[in-house]
Design a protein around this nucleic acid. Structure first.
Lengths: 111, 111
DNA sequence: GCAATGCTGAAGTAATTGCTTCACTATTGT
DNA sequence: ACAATAGTGAAGCAATTACTTCAGCATTGC
């Protein structure tokens, strides 16, 4: 299971920017060209391309160039890796609280 | 629902560092002091405190000082916010693929 | 009272980030 | 052929990040 720390670094780092999250949001509704991604963002096309490169390096987005237009889509498996990490920690935390609850209940029974 | 972009920035940014993820990991197994958090990390205590401040600012960790020792614990609701954002995008993406599947199936029927 | 412990805060520094602008190339439409 | 479109690439720059060291300051144990 994809637990490479460096991969998670790139992933969370990629999601840590509002412009990039907006791009992912846009792509979650369907593929888009670079210009389409750029349209709602208040920054130069160059800046958008740089963000896109970050997203691609993180594995969250895959792109393909046909003619002069580069089409971008989400790579859903990648999102899963981030989700997994969070889930695992939440699970560990919940299990701990359960054990704590059991312990408290048991202690109470024995008083 | 907590959809404050700035909040998500802090959250994902906080999770984008391996040392900080390790700290969250440790805390998911139970509360710890600053020194305990620092112990497995190959960096100065000061550095650890700085990471801890990032985690606290993101809302992921809550700390309380008693005497000279500061005890840290996870704030599980915060983790949920990151999880939610990811889930929502995944959902949007899945719904889109479903519609696409329906469309293709329908198209196939009509040939 | 004194030393060890547990942390805090400031200053400094090298690397990285998030942009910008400008110059450029490749493709498409007329 | 020519102009408009779509994107690329490099240089530059201010702000932020991830540390470091060093100097401190409460609290605790003896």
């Amino acid at each position: 299971m994809l637990h490479d720390p460096a991969q998670l670094d790139l992933m969370f780092q990629a999601l840590a920017d509002p412009a990039r999250r907006q791009m992912v949001d846009r792509l979650s509704r369907g593929p888009a060209s670079v210009s389409q991604l750029a349209e709602p963002l208040a920054m130069s096309l160059s800046a958008v391309v740089q963000h896109l490169n970050v997203l691609e390096a993180s594995g969250l987005v895959r792109t393909e160039k046909l003619g002069r237009v580069r089409t971008c889509q989400i790579e859903p498996k990648a999102l899963g890796a981030a989700e997994n990490w969070i889930n695992e920690r939440r699970l560990a935390w919940e299990r701990r609280l359960d054990r704590l609850g059991d312990f408290l209940a048991e202690t109470k029974d024995h008083t």
